[in-house]
Design a protein around this nucleic acid. Structure first.
Lengths: 116, 116
DNA sequence: GAATTATATAACCAAAGACTTATATAATGG
DNA sequence: CCATTATATAAGTCTTTGGTTATATAATTC
């Protein structure tokens, strides 16, 4: 297991961190680390309006942290593991407790999507 | 060398990340990782007004990332290594390139303080 | 092709951020 | 004690952010 890390410059580090410095987006990243989710699933899990979720996802996508894939009428989002600061993303997510209350609460609200 | 990491909950992770999600504060953290600096040194290095620097330092201090120490008329700031999310801070700083242009430029402007 | 479902986008708003200038505080040195 | 130096704080401004509601777009189903 090599631990060689791709170093980032100040601007990209800040951009990546800003994208993740929000509870909703941080948890979305934690979730997409495991598998892809569609917008409506996030809407249910975070109990947040569809436009609000959509805008959070747009930020993550614009920053390069996630990737979007269309499946029928759904749009699935997953972690972009080719992202330049991918190592930074991983080390941040790695510091986040998997037993965290907020995370647990959100995961428990996961709903299935027809196309699954 | 143990790599056991103290996990953080969502709220503290976000709080810590927000404190560092600014180029000035990120670089201040990178600097204080090595040694303590006083306010006037940051003012010179970042070519930023004294109140602006003072406010950035207050944010870092309020969030628990740095520690303040008075030496005569100066106030020195250093990394708080007893901070709960200290590991998170370190892994973020570790991802930041030491050869980064912005960092280099700032370091080159370091000035001495009489009391040193 | 009309209704439904999933999503994005636009326009708006309140709160938070990052500065500014002006002023207060506190230690130092004559 | 007074002037100087280092720093903090207050108040104001402008921008960014994270939500809202309303509407547009696009695929699916009947």
């Amino acid at each position: 297991m090599t631990a060689v890390t791709v170093k980032q410059d100040t601007a990209s580090t800040v951009q990546c961190m800003k994208a993740m410095s929000d509870p909703t987006r941080l948890l979305i990243m934690k979730l997409v680390q495991k598998k892809a989710y569609c917008v409506c699933q996030f809407v249910d899990m975070f109990e947040m309006s569809q436009p609000a979720i959509s805008q959070h996802l747009r930020k993550l996508k614009m920053a390069g942290l996630v990737r979007e894939e269309r499946r029928g009428q759904w749009r699935f989002f997953s972690m972009n593991d080719e992202f330049g600061a991918h190592d930074l993303v991983l080390s941040i997510l790695n510091q986040l407790d998997d037993e965290d209350e907020t995370l647990r609460a959100i995961q428990s609200k996961e709903t299935a999507v027809s196309c699954d």
